[in-house]
Computed example of a mutant assay.
Amino acid sequence: MNEPISPYVLTNENSPAFWLIDNLWMPLAGSFLTNGNFCFMEQVCGTGIGGPPTHSHPSDEGLYVLEGHCTFNAGGETVKAGPGTLVSVPRLVEHSFTVDAPNSRLLNFYTPGGFEMLLMSLAMPAAERKPPVPGSTPMPPRWMVEECSREFGQIAGVALPFADPPTKENMVTKPSTVNPIKPYGVNVNNARAYWSQGVLWTILATAEQTGGSYSLMEEFCPKDAGPPPHTHEQDEVIYVIEGELTMIAGGTRLNAKAGALAYIPARCVHSFRVDSHQARLLNFYLPGGFERVITEFGVPAKSRVLPPADLKQSGTDQQMTALFQRVGMQAVALPDSLRDGSRK
């Protein structure tokens, strides 16, 4: 697909919604809208026992826990994950997980995309935006799961996800023999954090950790925070955990509140402004590398709060400009209409 792609915002209130294995699934980004680069879904796991047996994908996968608790098994490692935990699973690495608390909310993303097609081929449209009554949605036929897994990139272990129930025996994982990139889990309360540009940045995934596939940071922002018009060579994704933003992307003004995902393709001129008192955002870059702007020129945060008003940045303007060029970011000589005194 070589057609240009456009920026957009989609929320968990107006996205498509599906039921499968007693969970509610809401796709917020799919392959068609992202040129095949990315897919992203929000899940609400209703039964407290959901989760797949051991499997792998040809895509890199990440899972972020918004609410509740899960246990992830990946590449022979186990991660107990509560709110604010990212689990990064490299491509072709065995993994499985259990949901340890009913109505756990997870964000589930893949790069490149494609997994959303598996989901939508097997699921049924949700009658409402909450998990179905346990056991009320039929399991898809096994032959269909096998064929859709083959077409859309799900590699079964000893059991087949969406067809076989998870058991203690079929959820065991082993280290990968084909991918040297390791799975890991990290929580926002323990990850490296920096102060920069009036924002608290927490580093959840770097290009080094993901084999260059993506990087991910959590931003804790005050009112009016956000960058002026700029571009970069990476696709950017913003998921709003708390708060509300106004964005201008590709000349279009967009609003994004809690539960919204904004997709900004590479080389698209964009800016945003925090409209709420504060905001918490997940900020993805595909491929990774942009996090160097924060890790090389930010100041290590002394506490998990907004930076002091008199904080001095490290490095010179010339050094930062040179780094911007290396990571593919470029300021654009356009008026910053989000900060010209108008809040329209």
Rank of each mutant, 00 (worst) to 15 (best):
2 N>R: 14
3 E>R: 15
9 V>E: 03
9 V>A: 08
11 T>Q: 07
12 N>E: 08
25 W>V: 09
25 W>A: 00
30 G>A: 15
37 N>W: 04
47 T>M: 01
48 G>M: 12
49 I>E: 14
54 T>Y: 01
57 H>I: 10
58 P>L: 13
60 D>W: 12
60 D>Q: 11
64 Y>M: 11
68 G>W: 14
68 G>M: 08
75 G>N: 13
76 G>P: 15
77 E>C: 05
79 V>F: 15
85 T>R: 09
88 S>N: 05
88 S>H: 12
92 L>E: 15
95 H>D: 10
97 F>L: 15
103 N>Q: 10
105 R>C: 06
109 F>V: 14
121 S>T: 14
123 A>R: 06
131 P>C: 00
139 M>C: 06
140 P>K: 07
146 E>T: 05
147 E>H: 11
152 F>V: 08
153 G>H: 08
153 G>Q: 10
159 A>N: 08
161 P>N: 00
179 N>H: 12
187 N>G: 06
192 R>P: 03
194 Y>V: 12
195 W>C: 11
197 Q>S: 14
197 Q>A: 14
198 G>N: 12
205 A>E: 02
209 Q>G: 03
213 S>T: 08
216 L>R: 00
217 M>Y: 04
219 E>D: 08
221 C>K: 05
223 K>R: 13
224 D>K: 03
230 H>Y: 07
235 D>N: 09
235 D>S: 10
237 V>Y: 00
238 I>H: 01
239 Y>M: 02
242 E>N: 13
243 G>C: 12
246 T>F: 05
248 I>F: 00
258 A>T: 01
262 A>Y: 02
265 P>V: 15
271 S>N: 11
276 S>E: 15
277 H>W: 07
284 F>R: 03
284 F>A: 03
285 Y>M: 09
288 G>T: 00
288 G>K: 04
289 G>N: 11
289 G>I: 13
294 I>G: 06
296 E>L: 08
296 E>K: 13
298 G>S: 09
303 S>Y: 03
315 G>T: 10
317 D>G: 14
318 Q>M: 12
322 A>Y: 13
331 A>R: 01
332 V>R: 02
335 P>M: 00
336 D>A: 04
337 S>A: 01
339 R>V: 02
340 D>C: 03
